[in-house]
């Protein structure tokens, strides 16, 4: 029998620390879930029974230990670090996209200043706080951005663009670090 080994999306480019901001790659499963028509209630019930979580509303992140369930787009929610049950698949389209993304956590006191250089989103704490998730852009890339802590965000872009993500974040982090040094 052959043996396949796994490589991460960012390969050796992460982790990274520039100034007071760090970027680390996250290894996690990722499933997209979209309820079939008229099956939302059943799907929500399964999620509640299975994981004790409410179905996340628009921009919401629900977490239970290491399991995250978050709003993803107009049709989907996403499971991170948790596998949707077989039962859920009776009421919803479940798609495994665990390998489709480069998923990183970016953290540090200046993290919002770094993000303000790569995304048009309003990243002020009062607009984008812990437990919120949004879809937008990181530079030219479609991205999912989630606030996990006061100064910690999770960013997902397509896997093939991992090097570009690291490149774009590096430039923003260097700029913020240089400004802080200047002051």
């Amino acid at each position: 029998m052959v043996e396949l080994y796994a490589t991460s999306a960012s390969e050796a480019a992460l982790p990274l620390k520039i100034g007071g901001v760090s970027v680390a790659e996250v290894a996690t499963s990722l499933f997209l879930v979209a309820p079939f028509k008229g099956k939302f209630t059943q799907a929500a019930t399964v999620l509640n029974t299975q994981m004790g979580l409410e179905w996340p509303a628009v921009h919401e992140l629900k977490r239970m230990g290491g399991a995250y369930v978050l709003w993803f787009d107009h049709a989907h929610i996403a499971f991170m670090g948790a596998e949707p049950s077989v039962e859920l698949a009776r009421y919803a389209a479940v798609t495994d996209v665990s390998d489709a993304c480069c998923i990183i956590d970016i953290s540090g006191v200046s993290v919002r200043n770094v993000l303000a250089r790569v995304t048009p989103l309003d990243v002020r704490a009062k607009s984008f706080n812990i437990g919120m998730t949004q879809r937008s852009m990181v530079m030219h890339m479609q991205a999912s951005i989630t606030c996990l802590g006061k100064s910690k965000f999770r960013v997902m872009v397509f896997r093939s663009m991992a090097r570009t993500l690291v490149h774009d974040l590096t430039i923003a982090m260097e700029s913020v670090a240089a400004r802080e040094k200047k002051v």
Partner: peptide
Amino acid sequence: HHEMGCSA
């Protein structure tokens, strides 16, 4: 089309 957002 909110292509870079929620795809709606």
